Each structure stands twice: as structure tokens, then as C-alpha cells.
Amino acid sequence: MWFRTIQVGVMFICLWAGLSGQTKAGPYLGLTLPGSEAAPFAPGVLNSGLATRDITLMPDGSQIYVGLFLPGFRKAVIIETHQEGDRWTAPEVAAFSRDPRWRCLEPCISPDGRRFFFVSDRPADPRADKPGPFGIWVMDWTGTGWSEARRLPIGVNGTGNAFYPSITREGVLHFLQEEGQGGWLMRSAWKDGAWTVAEKLPPPFNADPRQANPRVDPDGRFILVPLMGRSDSLGGADYYGYFRRDDGTWTGPVHLGPTVNSAAGDEYSISLSPDGKVVFFGSNRALPRLDGKPLRWADILAERTQPGNGQTTLWWVDAGFLWEIRAKALASPAK
């Protein structure tokens, strides 16, 4: 995660009204799946004009968790909603994210639904009263809820900041260790009841530290990474994919195109839905709602409480473009 000043005005959010008016029983809050053009996910429900990004779902889609940031990154919380019978619960701050002293972000549920990873600056020592470095924490599914969170060992988190965990079905955790203006893509495996010491991903990864939050495919077929400063970038941070060949080697970074990248915004978090149908991503691109028409005070105020207003918004789009890019990349001769 690269931290920037998040400038969000004070705004009133009525999440329950949005939920009851826009959702129904069924996957993804009962919303119609997106097409080939990206759109804000659940506007007025989980996207309400605040800086919103990072999403994870239980494998069966019955629980959704989303990251939300308050102005200036003063607070970072994880919001949850669950499907209960024929309705979804009103979005609420998850219980493990409610302590006002600590920030929680970047949730990720393992492909089997048994572990919940997230990032927090809560101290490893429960007696401490000051934030520590950001690190990866984990909870276990008990059958009725999530266990108490515990910080992963220093052999994984290191002594600095660690961000954006994601894990394969085989138990290989991928994440970012921050260093300077970027960070290194790391991995650690759950083996014989313990985590192995984290190591840098080998080439072609980590050629340039100007990179952000890696998201590994549960089946290890690809790793999606925001990169900066490349010649084919549309501007700012763009999403790229590394794709694994049948022989175990990897392609170099492949630009994921204008479906998820834009010249008018930065992109810092991306993930594939458990069913493989949807790509979710964060972007601060602005929708042109106020362009080309006389401005009214009411319109300007309303703009501040809608996704796509220039704050980071959680978008979703049909995943077909990703599979097409992957097929093309794997068909190209290895260099």
C-alpha cells in the first residue's frame, strides 16, 4: 500500500437506506453482474463517496468485506455485510476493526474460507498503547465467526511495513514489504504448521521497486500488480499481470489495458472474485457527472457523496478481458 493524503470532505452517509433500496437476495448483494465496461460496485451501499477499495468475499459469496478510509488516512476500517436468508445485513464496521486506536485495511479471505488476512498498525504487544508498523494479521473461521486476530511472525512481516496479503490454495502467501518509494513482492508458505521465512519473488518479479499491492490468483495462474513509471503506462500507477506458463516460468509484466487502467487516475488494488467472473479494482478516476452543464449547489453537494467523485472508488467489471489478455500473453514466445 502506498499511503497518500486522502482528501475527503465531511459527508453524511446513510448506508442502511442505500442497502434497503438497492439490494436483494442473491450473490453480490443481488446486483446484476457488470459487463465489459467498468462501473462502481454497489453505489450508495458500499461505495458512498468516501475513499473505498479492497474487497474480499467468502468462497460462497455470502459475506463481503470492503476497506474504507477516512479523511487524511486518520482512520481505516473494514466494512462487512452478510447474506442472511432473503436479505443482506446493513453494512457495518467489522468487530475486529472497531478499535479507534488502530487502522485496519486490505482484507483477504483464503480460497477455502478458513482464514481471514488483513493489515493493521495495531501493536503486536496487546499492552502497548501506540501503533506499530503495519503488518499482516490473521483470523480463523470458527464455524460461527472469526477468531481473535494474531499477528504473523516477524519472519513474515519483517521489521518494517507489510501490506496487501493474498494466498493460493496451496498456502503460499503473497504480499508487499514496503521500502522507500515502493516495495518488494514477497512470499511465505504455510508448511508443517508454521510460516516459512519470507523471501522475495524471483525474476521476472521485483525488477523495479516502484510497485504496489500484489494479488495472487488462488490457483497460481497469475499475479496482478500495480506498477509505476513504465513506458506503456496510461499514467500514474497502472495494473499489470504476470502470467505463469505451463513449464512454471512467468511472463514479464503485461499491461491490463484501459478496462481497468486510466490516464486520469491511479490504480492501487485489484482482485478476482472467487467464482472467476468479476474483477474488482480501486481507482480514483472521476466520472464526468458535472461536466458540460450549469453547476448547481445541490449537484456539487451530491457529488461528494457519490462514488466516482475523484476519491478512490471500488469498481467492478466482467473478467473476460483478463482471460483474453492471459491467453494472448501465454501464446507469445518466451523472451
Rank of each mutant, 00 (worst) to 15 (best):
R127A: 15
V10H: 15
V172Y: 01
D318N: 14
A94D: 06
S110M: 06
W297Y: 10
D291E: 14
R151I: 11
Y239K: 06
I78A: 00
Y268H: 14
F280K: 06
F134G: 08
F96H: 07
S231N: 13
R304V: 13
T144D: 15
P226C: 07
G236F: 02
P226Y: 06
S283G: 05
W137L: 15
D275E: 14
V138P: 07
S147R: 06
L176P: 12
G72W: 00
N161F: 12
G132S: 13
S271N: 12
D275Y: 07
A76S: 15
V66W: 03
D217C: 14
K200M: 07
K200W: 02
T52I: 08
V317L: 00
G282T: 02
T305L: 08
T259I: 01
R103P: 07
G308M: 04
K277M: 13
A207N: 00
D86V: 09
V66P: 05
Q311C: 12
G21Y: 01
G252V: 01
S20V: 09
E148Q: 13
D86A: 14
F118T: 02
Y164F: 11
A263W: 00
R74Y: 05
G241D: 02
R114C: 05
P202K: 08
D246S: 08
G252F: 02
D219G: 14
I78Y: 06
G220V: 09
A189N: 00
T159V: 09
R98Q: 14
R98M: 13
D247Y: 01
D291G: 01
E199K: 05
L272V: 15
H255E: 00
Q63Y: 09
D99K: 10
F280L: 06
A90I: 05
V197N: 09
S48Y: 15
P218M: 11
R296S: 15
R127L: 14
P34F: 06
E267Y: 01
A327G: 10
L105T: 10
E267S: 15
P43D: 07
Q181G: 08
P123F: 09
D219E: 13
S166R: 12
Q63D: 15
F281N: 06
V138S: 13
M228L: 14
E106G: 08
G248P: 04
L227G: 01
D140K: 08
S110P: 08
G49V: 04
M139W: 07
F117L: 11
R245C: 03
E303W: 09
P274H: 12
G252K: 01
G113Y: 15
G180Y: 05
R122T: 11
Q181L: 12
D219S: 13
I55C: 03
T142V: 03
T249S: 12
P226N: 03
W297V: 10
Q63V: 14
A149I: 07
T23E: 00
P209D: 07
L57I: 04
